[in-house]
């Protein structure tokens, strides 16, 4: 038996008729056609499907769409206005080579939105624990840590660290 749900996604209200077994990530990607949120492992391990549900980062492959009834969702598409300036995290990832293939990036960034909201000046250790539910197979994480630190500095209104590459 289908259920009617009301969700706000990136500020836009939607009333949807969904099967209870529809996963939130499928609702976002297939019903609303927003494919910025990725499906990686489909087992709540990799974090590629991370979105914000009422401001909290969650893995949308392990939440049912019906559980989002009455709630507000933010996906990577909702971070920066179309054609407007990027979110500091998006800019930080771009400036610091925080991505190679980019598959983990939307989830990584959505997770870090909540991380920086709680603490906009995290230590390297706090960042690494903070992204412990997000797998990246390209970067080795170092540039992701730098990207988050860079975004933190920008959000604090401080001078952003140099993005000169390190040669080792």
């Amino acid at each position: 038996m289908n259920k009617t749900i009301n969700v706000t996604v990136n500020g836009a209200k939607h009333t949807l008729d969904v099967e209870p077994r529809l996963l939130l990530v499928h609702m976002i990607r297939e019903v609303l056609s927003m494919t910025g949120t990725h499906i990686g492992c489909d087992t709540s391990s990799c974090g590629a499907c991370t979105i914000l549900l009422d401001g909290k980062s969650i893995k949308s492959c392990t939440v049912l769409a019906v559980q989002a009834d009455g709630k507000s969702i933010t996906t990577i598409e909702g971070l920066a206005p179309e054609g407007g300036p990027l979110h500091p995290l998006q800019e930080g990832f771009k400036e610091n080579h925080g991505l190679h293939c980019g598959f983990c990036t939307p989830g990584m960034i959505m997770r870090c939105v909540e991380l920086l909201e709680h603490n906009n000046n995290p230590t390297e250790e706090e960042i690494r624990w903070g992204i412990s539910g997000n797998l990246c197979r390209c970067t080795g994480y170092n540039n992701i840590v730098k990207a988050v630190q860079w975004a933190g500095a920008k959000m604090r209104g401080e001078e952003t660290p140099s993005t000169e590459p390190e040669f080792v």
Binding site: S44, L115, W129, S132, G133
Partner: peptide, 11 residues
């Protein structure tokens, strides 16, 4: 801190 990861701990 040792249970799953931050996203899972939000749920």
């Amino acid at each position: 801190k040792l249970i799953a990861d931050p996203q899972v701990r939000n749920m």
